[in-house]
Design a binder for these strands. Structure first.
Lengths: 220, 220
DNA sequence: ACAATAATGTGAGATATCTCATATTTTTAA
DNA sequence: TTAAAAATATGAGATATCTCACATTATTGT
């Protein structure tokens, strides 16, 4: 991670105004920082003391289980807060966050924690963010319980395909969908067999959009 | 649902002071209300316009999937907020909440919504509540992905047993744990076979506390 | 350019979990 | 009090998903 200054800093501040998140002047407490692709923003098990607001980029939220399994809990896409729960709740150990692309964030030091925690403007925004997060996790949780991979994968292919082509890394997606690598490949093969997608060098091409949507929509 | 007045009302207000949740006088906006056992506090798919704070009681948070499966998402135990996400986010349809026992709540009408949404004291408490909710759901989600029923059931038996006896309704718990009734019974039978619990008329008695803890603790 | 590492792909056999059918017991409501 | 509804129980066969072993093909760092 490195901190941007001068022109780079002011350009981001202009492009992503954040003043209206707070009812006090946040600038003295704020840095613009950049994480390179693959860098860890939070280490699993650490006690972070910085609140980040991601402006540009994409990251993965991870946790490792006692049995060694790793869950890719979700993809984080700008804009969003990171480390907000630790701000509210002192000394809460955190999950791991690793960037997928170059990522630009505002970092806000906890030195203005007192100010933040009495700022209704900021707190209201945080409530909205947290409410949405809770709602999303609940949705994911219940969907995972109620539907087999066939449906969840169909939904995920719809979501992540670009120009009708799905080309995510299997190793990553099986962690995200919470199934084994083997099983993911089975179901992909099944989609090929059913002519829903076609495997080419460029990726899996969606050929039966309708059927895919049908499988996905059973979820909601 | 009925609203308590007079002596009943003031007794609850005394027993569960709530003034320090707000920086303005909430009393004019507040009712004390009681739901009978089995009553629905929120109907699934409705657009609630009341914020509740549960003082006493226990309820179940439900959702029904398109495929007809019902998920018992979680048990709600006092104290907690209900309808808070709908307060923040207009017109968000909600999940169903049904009481398990007689339940006493404060209800706060949305007529003071404007006041609530600029009240840092209240918002901060809401942030804490929502943050915890998000954290819990995330934990549940990842655990369900990473462990078979054997471990999750062991953890649940530990949690819900009273005086070493587990006696929840199977029909409910299988929805809660997200497995079929049949499978729940299989794993319970397996616990009996392994002499971890013993089935008697009074319920399933825990006889190998250590082994149960071992299975449960693999989760975390 | 090459060795190390990561990602892909596949088979085989095990296990976790589901669906459905059906019988019995308990609880609930009229 | 009795009939209906809910909860418990169990078998049998299917399906979803896992683990492990191993081979092949990219990707990456030096």
């Amino acid at each position: 991670m490195h901190i941007l200054t001068g022109r780079a800093r002011s350009d981001y501040l202009k492009k992503y105004p954040i003043d209206d998140f707070f009812s006090f002047d946040i600038q003295p407490y704020l840095e613009v920082c950049q994480f390179d692709k693959g860098e860890w923003i939070f280490q699993e098990g650490s006690f972070p003391d910085t609140l980040y607001y991601m402006l540009e980029g994409k990251a993965k939220l991870y946790m490792t289980h006692k049995n060694g399994k790793v869950s890719l809990i979700e993809y984080l896409k700008a804009p969003l807060f990171m480390g907000e729960i630790e701000l509210l709740n002192e000394a809460r150990y955190t999950k791991g966050i690793q960037t997928v692309t170059k990522t630009i964030c505002y970092s806000i030091t906890q030195s203005c924690k007192e100010k933040l925690l009495v700022d209704a403007l900021f707190l209201r925004r945080l409530c909205l963010f947290l409410g949405e997060k809770a709602t999303n996790m609940t949705a994911k949780y219940t969907q995972n319980q109620a539907y087999p991979l066939e449906n969840r994968l169909a939904a995920f292919i719809q979501l992540s395909a670009e120009q009708g082509i799905y080309k995510e890394k299997h190793t990553e997606i099986c962690e995200y969908l919470g199934v084994s690598y083997r099983h993911l490949l089975y179901v992909l093969a099944q989609f090929c067999e059913e002519q829903i997608v076609e495997k080419r060098k460029t990726g899996y091409h969606i050929i039966d959009k309708k059927r895919l949507a049908q499988l996905a929509q059973e979820i909601q």
